[in-house]
């Protein structure tokens, strides 16, 4: 983290570029950041909420279904964005590896920060939707930053791990895309965890996203206090994972130049 701090100007510039660069040359520009999750939400809501008529375990209409799905999607999208980008991070920037002395550790940070930013955009859209349907949000909704904070080390760790491994084994990129796809359905996004057969429930609980999704829905939608102890434990575990991933990244770092 000291590396990131030392290069904060560079980090900031890279995040800025990631944001502006993604839609560079497109007519929509930054609006795509909003439009994309909204569009996907509309598709999923029509498919699962309207056509398949899926409902949560409480009485509510399609609007409720959409809000619940969206809260889950925000978390999933952040993670999936990392999963699909990270394996190519180093290999797609050979200049930064071979030609200049570049603090490579911060590239995965950039991706994690960008993902969190996109999640923030998503939450802003979520609040808008909630305001239209129900008006003022619950006071507990103000706690959402704490939940994103717990998610952050998980994203960071995944990025360090995958970007480093992606250099050594190019197949990681393909695999990660598959995993991301599977996780869309193996995370309780379109359904509640209690709607799942007991055997599969364990799989879902082992999914690191499940806890975050549930907590986010708790504060945003249900207006309940999150499990503070749970969040604390989660944060510590995620941080430990990130530290291990960074360790691996640093171990493989000297060999990047020959393998990229």
């Amino acid at each position: 983290m000291t590396t990131a701090w030392r290069h904060r100007d560079l980090l900031l510039e890279l995040v800025k570029r990631e944001f502006t660069g993604r839609y560079r040359g497109s007519f929509g520009g930054l609006a795509w950041s909003f439009a994309q999750p909204l569009f996907l939400l509309a598709v999923y809501t029509v498919a699962f909420g309207v056509i398949l008529r899926m409902r949560w375990g409480f009485p509510g209409g399609t609007g409720d279904y959409a809000l619940m799905v969206f809260a889950g999607l925000i978390v999933f999208n952040a993670f999936a964005e990392c999963l699909t980008t990270a394996p190519w991070l180093i290999t797609s920037n050979p200049n930064y590896v071979k030609k200049v002395v570049f603090p490579l550790e911060i590239l995965p940070c950039v991706t994690a920060i960008t993902a969190i930013f996109h999640a923030l955009v998503g939450i802003a859209v979520w609040f808008l939707g909630y305001a239209i349907l129900y008006g003022a949000p619950h006071p507990t909704a103000a706690l959402f930053p704490a939940i994103l904070l717990c998610l952050f080390p998980l994203l960071l760790g995944a990025n360090w791990l995958l970007s480093a491994l992606g250099v050594v084994v190019r197949d990681i990129g393909q695999l990660a895309a598959l995993v991301a796809h599977a996780m869309l359905f193996l995370t309780p996004i379109f359904y509640g965890i209690d709607a799942v057969p007991p055997l599969l429930q364990n799989v879902l609980l082992a999914n690191p996203l499940t806890f975050v999704v549930e907590q986010l829905r708790l504060v945003l939608f249900f207006g309940e206090m999150p499990s503070l102890r749970g969040l604390a434990v989660y944060f510590v575990l995620a941080s430990a994972f990130a530290a291990l991933a960074l360790g691996l990244f640093r171990r493989l770092r000297p060999r990047f130049a020959e393998m990229v």
């Binding site: 570029r17 560079r24 200049n95 071979k98 030609k99 200049v100 570049f102």
Partner: peptide, 13 residues
């Protein structure tokens, strides 16, 4: 270091 022509430059920018 000037190791190679325009290394570290992003052509899009």
């Amino acid at each position: 270091a000037l190791l190679e022509l325009g290394s570290g430059f992003n052509p899009e920018y």
